[in-house]
Each structure stands twice: as structure tokens, then as C-alpha cells.
């Protein structure tokens, strides 16, 4: 059995075709694009919320998309245990929708950061890294964002630390202020919900799926989702 995929599309999404290409052409899986006014089909095993500027980033990044009709079906899928990955603006949408702890603010540098970063895996019990990453392993994936400064208030900081899956690090795996591209608390680059089936991350795994364009570490995340999603 192979997993069925859905990619959610909002007005202003601009990374959805990167995801579709990665899943359909590189991973070789069936993928449906779901418009923000529609519902994600029930028989989908993996959902991607892509990057971009949904609703023009009006009000707060991701806030209006979080209220759109499609998110009711995404929430229902989250409760059923479907694997859901939100990347960049998708991470912001999942936080605003209350599916993940914390929130994302402007980068402390006030600069849009568009670079490759190193990420350290902080756990090894995750369906998003199963079979290819152990705790402490380092991967390289690009970021491109102005609102990636992850913040969790006092009441959620414990959950954020426990549920952090990726932190910004150096090539040697050291996590320091100098390896933090946006001011995120505890260098957090990606965090899951408590159950572990919903992941939000600022770096773009769908842009690291072929050696020709800078590496395949992102493809390994999608492959792990694909394997684990098909099992569920």
C-alpha cells in the first residue's frame, strides 16, 4: 500500500507546486490539490500545507487561512491521526489554527532569510524522521522567510521543548545563537503536536528532493511520511 497525498492551496500559496512535484514526480505518489473552500478527502494519508503568503499575510501570517473552510477537514484529519506537515506559511497556519503550540513572529533581524540551514533532529520517535534520522543527526534544508521567529509563551514553552523535532544548528550539530537565523526560542525550527502526527517547520523539505537542486534530505522526510502514513 502506498500513501495518498493532499496538498492544500490557499489564495496566495506559492509553494504548492513544489510539493506536488516532489510527491508526484519524485516520490511517485498520487496527490490531490485541495482548494481552501473545499474539504480534504477522507481517504488521504498525508497532508501538506505549503508555504507562501496565504491571504496576502493580512492580519497575521497564516491567521486568515486558519479560519478558512478547508481547515475544518484538516482538523478532523489531525484528530484521526493523519500525518500533516505545514511548511513555512503552512507552519504559521497550523499554529494559528491551534493545531501546534506557539506562534511565529517577524525575524529578529527584520530581514527575509533565504539560505540553506542545518537542522538537528531532537527526537527519534517521529513518523516524520522514522528510518533515517536518529537524535542528534544533522540534515541540510533551505529556508526562505521573514516571519520565522518561533515563540512559545510561558504556558507552552514546556510543550514546545518536548515536542521540538528540529533545531537550527551548525554543520557539526552544535545548537548556538550564531546558528539561529531568525531568533526562534531554543533555536526551534520544527515542532509537532503532542500526539506527534502534525509537524510544522520553517525550512522547506519540498525544495530539497533532488541532488541536482542541492540535496535530498527533504525527500527523506517525505519518504518517512509516505511509509508511516501508508501503515496507519
Amino acid at each position: 500500500m502506498s500513501a495518498r497525498w493532499a496538498v492544500v492551496v490557499f489564495p496566495g500559496s506559492n509553494c504548492e507546486q513544489d510539493f506536488v512535484t516532489a510527491v508526484r514526480d519524485v516520490l511517485g505518489r498520487e496527490v490531490v490539490e485541495v482548494w481552501h473552500k473545499d474539504e480534504v478527502p477522507e481517504d488521504v494519508d498525508c497532508i501538506a500545507i505549503p508555504g507562501g503568503f496565504s491571504y496576502g499575510d493580512y492580519l497575521r501570517a497564516g491567521s486568515l487561512a486558519a479560519m478558512s473552510p478547508v481547515m475544518q477537514s484538516v482538523k478532523a484529519h489531525a484528530e484521526r491521526g493523519t500525518l500533516i506537515i505545514g511548511v513555512c506559511n503552512g507552519f504559521q497556519v497550523l499554529c494559528e489554527a491551534g493545531l501546534l503550540p506557539g506562534a511565529l513572529m517577524k525575524n529578529t533581524s527584520l530581514r527575509f532569510r533565504c539560505i540553506d540551514v542545518f537542522l538537528r533532529a531532537e527526537r527519534e520517535d517521529s513518523p516524520f524522521t522514522a528510518g533515517f534520522l536518529k537524535k542528534g543527526d544533522v540534515i541540510r534544508i533551505p529556508i526562505a522567510h521573514g516571519y520565522g521567529n518561533y515563540y512559545a509563551p510561558a504556558g507552552q514553552i514546556g510543550a514546545a521543548e518536548k515536542q521540538a523535532l528540529f533545531t537550527y544548528c551548525g554543520a557539526d550539530g552544535r545548537v548556538e545563537d550564531s546558528t539561529n537565523p531568525n531568533g526562534s526560542v531554543m533555536n526551534i525550527a520544527g515542532v509537532t503536536n503532542e500526539r506527534g502526527n502534525v509537524l510544522g517547520m520553517m525550512p522547506h523539505p519540498e525544495r530539497a528532493v533532488e541532488a541536482l537542486i542541492g540535496g535530498t534530505d527533504g525527500l527523506n522526510i517525505l519518504k518517512a511520511m509516505d511509509r508511516e502514513g501508508a501503515k496507519a
Binding site: L59, R60, S63, G102, A103, M105, Y151
Partner: peptide, 8 residues
């Protein structure tokens, strides 16, 4: 619920 994010 909408105009502010109470976390921030």
C-alpha cells in the same frame, strides 16, 4: 479569536 493572537 481573530484580531489578536493572545499568545503574543
Amino acid at each position: 479569536e481573530t484580531l489578536s493572537n493572545p499568545l503574543l
